[in-house]
Design a protein around this nucleic acid. Structure first.
Lengths: 237, 237
DNA sequence: TTTACCGGTTGATGCAGATCAAGGACCGCC
DNA sequence: GGCGGTCCTTGATCTGCATCAACCGGTAAA
């Protein structure tokens, strides 16, 4: 169930054997730069549901997600919540132009991050165009995911939302751990609802309907894609 | 009605007197770099509703929006449309990691852009960390707008959507031309609907309701914010 | 073992916004 | 001046999802 890879500890071993390096911003760095970066970052662990940083908090650090899954969300004053994304190992979080975070981030299951002070990280990247490009690449990827998600939120039905979510979540996990028809879902139904702009009841009903239609099999903590083709069809049109 | 500023023509006058330079990526450049960039870019004009680039087209160029407004949208196979954003002068468009554009962009009213070949622009920015940082800044700004919009699409009522839209559109225009209670709306009701994840009828009804409630005044091509405070209240909670 | 709790499912009902349908205002054009 | 077209508004009806409420199964505390 745990979504992680063996990641190096920057406080101890240098990042050389960090399993997520090739996914993260660090992929852009050579050995000398990695040695330099090790001293700036520090591994920090979080328990399930602990918050790594909160909306409106000052942005004093940036984070490299090493292990686990995080939910990134915004709250409206009256408590309504929209999850703007789920972060997987390799994600680079906390970059913001404003002095405050635009959203909250907390752990789904246990999480390990590499934390850097924002100022020292800013100094480190200052004259490293390859690293800047890498960061920019990750930001653009995130933006394009956000745009896809806007289409989902604005223009898709509940069934389409759920099918699209399961497929794209599966694909993201596949990039980390290889293809697999069983899709672990570490987040709660409420999380899925708040991500898809639905209520928990509608998500639950839609899952049940997909199971009745033999598109998925529901297991505790995961679903099995029994008929990926049909799921794709639902997601597409 | 026209949303523009007097912008320099990179093919003729150098960018020195380009009115949108301070808003665009070019703000990061010094005189020598601007002189170099002039030769890479070329001013291109578009008529209303012409498309600047289309979803799934190869990304051969990047664009700096000089004058006018563009709608950026994604289409589903069955024709449903989601507008992912409106671009104003200073916007930098066309950056993508993938080889193809993730969305279409077309002109709302006449538009002028500065077009650069992607490869020559990539070569130009290669070793210019200040420019890379500027581009990254604009991307992060765009991402944060996208996240705000996800909250709107997923968790707000029709009335909240419309009020939020009017206020944030007013604020974006204010950054270009100074504060103003009259809010030009160059885009159609259908555009607004496709941006807010509503139907044109609902948008129309909501406008009418806001007018009945003395929150806005409807004029052809614009609205007047009669009671900004009440609009803020609707948008907030 | 009982009880309480939490996350998830299921059912009954209500409503915001979609859909369907009909005008009205304004435009350029013949 | 009449005509067709586009954009917008308004009204009547429908429906997908929200809301309200009950219940189920697993787990942990009493």
């Amino acid at each position: 169930m745990k979504i992680s890879l063996v990641a190096g500890d920057p406080a101890g071993q240098p990042c050389a054997d960090c399993a997520i390096r090739c996914l993260s911003v660090c992929a852009a760095l050579d050995k000398a730069e990695l040695r330099e970066l090790v001293h700036l970052g520090r591994r920090v662990d979080f328990l399930s549901c602990e918050t790594v940083f909160g909306q409106e908090e000052m942005t004093t650090s940036v984070y490299n997600l090493l292990e686990g899954v995080m939910r990134l969300y915004k709250l409206l004053p009256d408590g309504r919540r929209q999850i703007v994304g789920f972060a997987l190992p390799g994600a680079f979080l906390g970059m913001a132009i404003s002095a405050r975070h635009g959203f909250s981030a907390d752990a789904i299951g246990t999480v390990a991050v590499c934390r850097f002070s924002k100022t020292s990280f800013a100094r480190f990247i200052e004259e490293k165009p390859h690293l800047l490009r890498r960061i920019n690449e990750l930001t653009i990827l995130e933006l394009s995911r956000a745009q896809d998600h806007m289409v989902l939120l604005g223009r898709r039905s509940a069934e389409e939302k759920v099918a699209t979510f399961l497929l794209s979540w599966r694909d993201r996990l596949a990039q980390l751990r290889g293809p697999e028809n069983s899709v672990p879902l570490p987040m709660s139904r409420q999380d899925i609802a708040d991500f898809l702009g639905l209520t928990i009841e509608t998500v639950s009903r839609t899952f049940t309907k997909l199971e009745r239609d033999r598109v998925i099999g529901i297991q505790p903590g995961s679903v099995c894609l029994l008929d990926p083709a049909r799921a794709e069809a639902m997601a597409a049109a």
